[in-house]
Design a protein around this nucleic acid. Structure first.
Length: 556
DNA sequence: GTAGGGTTAG
């Protein structure tokens, strides 16, 4: 009798302990006590223990326990599934969905949302569609959480239309702040900033007066950064302040990033300076911003400051600092970072760090060293394509046809999307006066059916986009002759001032008065950005600012 | 006991 009452009072206490446990040792200790008391084998106890092991990442123990259960309910299956999904084995999580059906336990809404989120982690729309179909058959697809997970899954898998279809299919009451936020981030993550901004406006008018939360606000700010909409970004900044999210770390980071991408480094700097304890991401963000503005030494100061303040840098931070070095000609500092990041910060240099370093050496004209490093780097697949393509461009810029040929050879080994590299190679031959070889590259491309999508840029003037394609100087009605004359004139002026010509991306120009630039190499053919910029310079009022960003132009 | 969204790079 005494034993029974002890069991009855002790078990809930132990379960409570399990819920709060975050490390393997304490979960195992509590598990042992439950075994002693004799209540560890009840289905509900087992579920708690499984969940606890999963929470601290010990899925193997959880699975052992699961295997030993005489019967399992939907929670046992879902808990294990969730454990695998959140510890980097989402495919295994999805396969449990099939197993549980075979064992006669029907899934519920929790199970489907877990399975869908595992598909999201895999970014596998094919698998996601299968799970979606099953949820539909079982009647759970209209559940708010399942539907929101589906929106997120399709978005992460790049199928924006499917995400929107699920979102549109949700009944109005089922659309809560999370589902709006999820759809918003789908647009933001898929580089559809305009759509994200539009959806946010829709939310403000049709969202039943729901208050925007920090998830949504950071997505919208991010969208504004992506499309250079400073005006909207500022107003969202105001909204964030009004709703008390002005101090939210994630929003502040997004704002720092947005202002710098919209051409206002000073605002980024001001915001950053007000942050008391900047996170790694905050530091990374301001370092990247400084790098973009050619403030290499400033970026290094931020980096040293974060190290002094015991903020551990990550792989992205190091890449940002290296970019800063690259864009400010601090080549040896950048190389030193590459070689010391493992020992100093315990960060293993990956393909992007090597690509950045190779690009840095290439820009500086240290092509032999760049080759040596590129050969040393153990890089494969698409990463290798990027690395060698970047080196190829540098060879062309520095008119080293011999090395360009070698780089082009390496690029062709990857047999992937080599069109861009072949165009660079053909341009390299043209620059060297070897027009026959240039023509041979083109005919080779035609024979192999390789096509290069023409680069395209556009400029928005009074909400009308004017689109320009690389090399095509006659967009309908867009004053082609004048554009070309203006570009020639500008290029001439740049040469007079000693610039080697060429215009980079992410630079701010004042209309009719162009800032200096450190780009190298000369114009071969006509870049689409230049066409759009030239057109903009002709038609927009003097003194207005044009921001160039990855081939898109904005007026402010 | 099991479920949904956000920030940094290229």
């Amino acid at each position: 009798m005494a034993a029974t009452s002890t069991t009855a009072t002790v078990t809930p206490l132990l379960i409570h302990l399990l819920r709060g446990a975050t490390d393997h040792a304490s979960v195992a200790a509590t598990h042992a006590k439950l075994l002693k008391v004799g209540t560890a084998s009840a289905v509900s106890s087992c579920n708690h223990i499984i969940a606890a092991y999963c929470r601290c990442g010990v899925t193997a123990r959880a699975h052992d326990l699961f295997d030993g259960m005489p019967e399992r309910d939907v929670i046992s299956w879902t808990a294990l599934m969730s454990g695998y999904s959140s510890t980097g084995r989402p495919r295994l999580a999805v396969s449990l969905l099939r197993d549980m059906s075979h064992s006669g336990v029907p899934p519920n809404a929790f199970t489907f949302s877990t399975a869908v989120s595992a598909c999201a982690r895999l970014a596998d729309a094919g698998l996601g569609r299968k799970v979606h179909a099953r949820a539909e058959v079982e009647g759970y697809a209209s559940d708010a959480v399942v539907a929101t997970a589906l929106v997120d899954m399709y978005g992460k898998a790049g199928d924006v239309e499917a995400a929107r279809a699920v979102f549109d299919g949700m009944a109005a009451p089922a659309r809560n702040a999370v589902s709006w936020g999820s759809m918003l981030s789908v647009y933001a993550q898929n580089a559809l900033g305009r759509e994200a901004i539009q959806l946010f406006a829709e939310f403000r008018t049709k969202g039943n007066f729901m208050a925007p939360n920090h998830f949504m606000l950071s997505s919208v700010v991010n969208a504004c950064a992506g499309v250079g909409r400073l005006g909207v970004g500022k107003s969202v900044h105001g909204t964030a302040l009004r709703f008390g999210h002005g101090c939210n770390g994630v929003i502040v980071v997004a704002l720092v990033d947005m202002y710098s991408k919209c051409g206002f480094y000073e605002y980024s700097r001001k915001l950053f300076d007000r942050i008391e304890h900047p996170s790694v991401i905050c530091y990374t963000s301001i370092i990247v911003a400084a790098a973009k503005y050619g403030l290499g030494r400033c970026a290094l100061t931020f980096f040293n400051e974060m190290i002094d303040r015991d903020v551990q840098p990550n792989s992205v931070t190091l890449l940002g600092v290296m970019h800063a070095c690259s864009h400010s000609g601090l080549v040896d500092t950048g190389l030193h970072l590459l070689h010391s990041m493992q020992s100093k910060y315990d960060i293993h240099p990956c393909a992007s760090h090597y690509t950045c370093a190779v690009d840095m050496l290439g820009r500086a004209g240290r092509l032999e060293e760049a080759f040596e490093l590129a050969n040393e780097a153990q890089v494969e697949g698409r990463d290798a394509l990027m690395l060698w393509s970047s080196l190829l461009s540098a060879c062309r810029t520095h008119r080293r046809l011999d090395l360009a040929t070698r780089a082009a050879h390496r690029v062709s080994e990857f047999n992937q999307d080599v069109a861009g590299a072949l165009v660079v190679m053909s341009n390299a031959y043209t620059s060297a006066g070897q027009t026959d070889n240039a023509a041979a590259v083109w005919s080779n491309m035609r024979r192999r059916g390789i096509q290069k999508d023409p680069g395209c840029s556009w400029i928005e003037i009074k909400d009308i986009p004017y689109v320009f394609y690389a090399g095509l100087v006659s967009p309908s009605g867009a004053r082609a002759g004048e554009v070309m004359m203006l570009l020639d004139e500008l290029e001439g002026k740049m040469r007079e001032k000693g610039y080697k010509g060429g215009l980079g991306s992410s630079r701010v120009f004042d209309a009719h008065e162009e800032d200096g630039e450190d780009g190298k190499g000369e114009m071969v053919g006509v870049h689409s950005e230049l066409l759009a910029l030239g057109f903009g310079l002709l038609v927009i009022p003097k003194g207005m600012t044009i921001t160039l960003q990855d081939g898109v132009m904005f007026l402010q």
